[in-house]
Structures are given as C-alpha cells and as structure tokens.
Design a protein around this nucleic acid. Structure first.
Lengths: 226, 226
DNA sequence: GATAACCAAATTGTTGACAATAATGCGGGC
DNA sequence: GCCCGCATTATTGTCAACAATTTGGTTATC
C-alpha cells in the first residue's frame, strides 16, 4: 500500500506497480477467480492511465494470473486442484534440489540464519501466532533457495506460488498444520547441519508433499476450485 | 513466417504474434543480447501497430527475454554463464521428476511413442542430421513431461529454455554431442521401460547435467555471455 | 587538442478520441 | 408467462497526435 500512495504522490503508478496492486488484490481475495477486471475500475482505483493498465494485464497474463480474451478483457484465472497438484510437484522438485545445494554450498552465516528463523517459527507454534509463522515460513524457504545459489529457482517458485497464495493466507497455517510444518523443518535442518544433501532433499520433498496433502483435505471440505 | 504473412493478409499481427516473431528472431540469432529493440523497426518489419508492439514487449519482459528501461525501450537480455548453470539445475530437477512420474503414470501409447522418437533420433545420429535431431529432441522431452501429467512443468521448462535456445540451435547438436545425448536417452528409456522411477530420475538428471557441461566447454571457447 | 555546454534528431511515454465488439435491457409476438 | 429479436449501453481494440526524455553531434571555450 505504501508504494502505491507514494507513486501517486509523484506522478502516477507505473505498469509494474499496477500489476503489483492487482496481484495484492488477488492475494487478499478481493479479486476472486473468474472475476472480470474492467479497465475503467482499475483506472479509478489505481489512478493509472488505460495504457498502463493494459500493459499490466499483459504482464499478469504472462505470469498466468489472468486470462485475456479478445474484446472481453482480462479476468482472474483460478487454479484447479489438478493444477495445484502439478504446481506442488514442481515445487517439491525445485526446493528439494535447493535443500541439497544449500547443504553443499551455503555459507556459515546462511546456515546460522536458517536456524534462527526456524527457532522463531517454533516459538510461533507454541504461542499460536499463525500469521507470523506464515511470514517467517516464506522467509525461511526463500533463504534456503538463495543460499543454494539459485535465484532462477527462487523466482520460478515465487511465480508458482502466486495462484494459491490466498489459500495459504486464509486457512493454511493454523492448528495442527503448524506443528507438522515445524516438525518437517526440523528434519530438513538436521540433514543440512549433518551435511547430508540427499537426506535434505528427501525431507524437503516430503515437506512440500505434506503441504499438498493438507490442501487436498481442505479441498474436500470447501470446494475452492473454479 | 507463414503465420506472419497470413496475419498480415487479414488485418495485422496480434501482440502475441509479434512477440512470437521477436522470439524467433532471438532464437535465430538475428537479434543478439544487448541489442535494442527500436519500436519503429519492429513496426516496419512486422506490420503491427505501436500499441501492439509495446504489448508484445511486456509479455517478453515477463518471460525474462527482454529488459525494459524507462525512456530507453526494450533490449534483448543475455544470460550469464552462472544463470545458465542455475537454469540447467532447475531443468535437471524438473525433468528428473517428470521422468519418474512418467514411469509411474504414462499411458502405454505414450511409452511407445517415446520409443519411436528415440529410435528416429538414433537414425539422425547415424545419418548426421543435427537439425532434425534437435527438433526430435524437443519433441521427446515435451512428450516426457506431458506423459508425466504435468503441464505446469512443461511450460516452466519452455520458459527456462528460451534464453539459451539460440545456443542450442547454433552449435549444440553436432558431432560427438549427438552420440552422448542418444546414449543418455537410451539409459533413461531403459529405466522407464523397466518401471524404475528412481533410476529414470537419476539418468535424466545426469543427462541434463551433461548438457550443462557441454555448454561450459563451449563457453570456454567462445564467450557468448554479455 | 580536450572538454563542457548546448542544440537537434531520434526514441519512447502518455493521452484522448474514435471504431469494433460484447453485454444488457426492452418490447413484441406466441 | 416465456422466448426471440432489436436497440441501447458498456467495454475493449485501435490509432494518431503530442509531450518527455535520451542520444549524438556541434561548437565555443580553455
């Protein structure tokens, strides 16, 4: 929000800023799958020109977040459960590899930092603070990919996550799931500290697969797919 | 080229067609890394309007193929050797997983098709037809990902490959490299037919890593990075 | 001869108006 | 009462003109 206000103050948001704004709306569930993004509305709400809004649409379309149809504009794309499965499978492979690479390549500072964040997350479990847990979790996974020396994977994973981000924030991190995730993290961390790349990879894959299983259970309760 | 002509006949190319045209230029090395994409030139060569050209730029920028700078337009982005390494590492993880999933999930028809393409590639090695080998190779890898039931990975890999595509077409598939690649494919195929997902994954990873090693050797001869 | 200020050309950013198409509401006929 | 066709409205697609900025060269000055 800060960025948007600041941008408005100086001249008007750039197409990238508009795209980010729309992303934020989707994440916070204010734009739901299937909803049409009417250009005039976006212009009113962001203060950007029509040209910039349409540039933003193109970027979002390339990211797979919206669909553009001729003469029908852009609408928010929803992910089916099968797509979520494919997506988590990809994440498992990529983050698994990063866990292995981290074990072999990461600096001592990164290793310690990883431990610190994990410790903070354990506290969140005890004190029942799911929103902070979610924030730290994102930071933890990011540090792992960066420490593995692979920015490309980091960006790919970021993109992969966007379509299901709102699910995570809404219902993912609460109750028993926190404890499970923390347990998984302990296993991954132990393998890394023991300099066992293969085991780190295996544990990370299991961790991501567990996340998918949890989403599946959620899906059976509430049907969020379009 | 057919598409472009056809499009011109009816009205003018869409932004997606312009983007594809630029992609083709980059792949065929007619546009090289660092080169500026002047809007007027693109308009002249494609027949598209300025608006569509700029929409195309946004898509390409989201794909990481071009960089857009304020008041300086779009220019072709080049990949450093380290980025190529990260990229191949990601491919190794993703395609490795697909090899395992293919082993467990693919239909009998897909398995047979995979064998057919591999056989055709072997012939290309014998008869020294590198360009057809390259085409079949792309088809082979694509079939493997699709048969694994993962379109998401297929699209991610397609995007990952684009920045180094022109390298592959220019110098990659020739001479000894063809024989190596064919040998790798045999190993992967054998594991799949033996219903050994773990070995299929391992062999596929090795195959991709071999590709990276070959690119490294190439890099030491000619410095293509910007 | 080198350097800095400046001007002109080239290029991109922005806006508004107009055309083409889809969505909507209305009225008539059955 | 319901459905089909038509007109109206809303929305997107396209383009051309204008503004802002960079770039390259030129000239004056030291």
């Amino acid at each position: 929000m800060e960025d948007a206000v600041e941008a408005l103050a100086r001249k008007g948001p750039s197409s990238a800023e508009i795209a980010d704004w729309i992303r934020a709306q989707i994440r916070s569930n204010r734009f739901v799958p299937g909803q049409r993004l009417v250009e005039v509305d976006i212009i009113r709400q962001t203060g950007g020109s029509r040209f910039k809004v349409r540039e933003a649409y193109q970027r979002l379309a390339a990211d797979g977040l919206v669909e553009i149809e001729e003469f029908r504009g852009a609408k928010v794309r929803g992910a089916s459960m099968d797509e979520v499965r494919q997506l988590y499978r990809a994440r498992a492979a990529l983050e698994g590899l990063c866990a292995a690479d981290f074990t072999e390549r990461a600096s001592q500072a990164d290793r310690e930092h990883l431990q610190e964040i994990a410790a903070a997350m354990e506290e969140c479990v005890e004190n029942e603070r799911p929103e902070e847990f979610g924030r730290l979790n994102a930071e933890w996974h990011q540090l792992l990919m960066r420490g593995a020396g692979n920015l490309v994977i980091e960006q790919v994973v970021k993109r992969l996550n966007t379509p299901v981000h709102h699910l995570l924030f809404g219902t993912f991190y609460r109750g028993e799931r926190l404890r499970e995730a923390a347990r998984d993290h302990r296993a991954i961390l132990a393998a890394i500290m023991a300099n066992d790349p293969a085991e780190a990879e295996r544990a990370m894959r299991e961790h991501v697969e567990n996340g998918l299983s949890f989403l599946r259970e959620l899906d059976e309760a509430v049907h969020f797919h379009t």
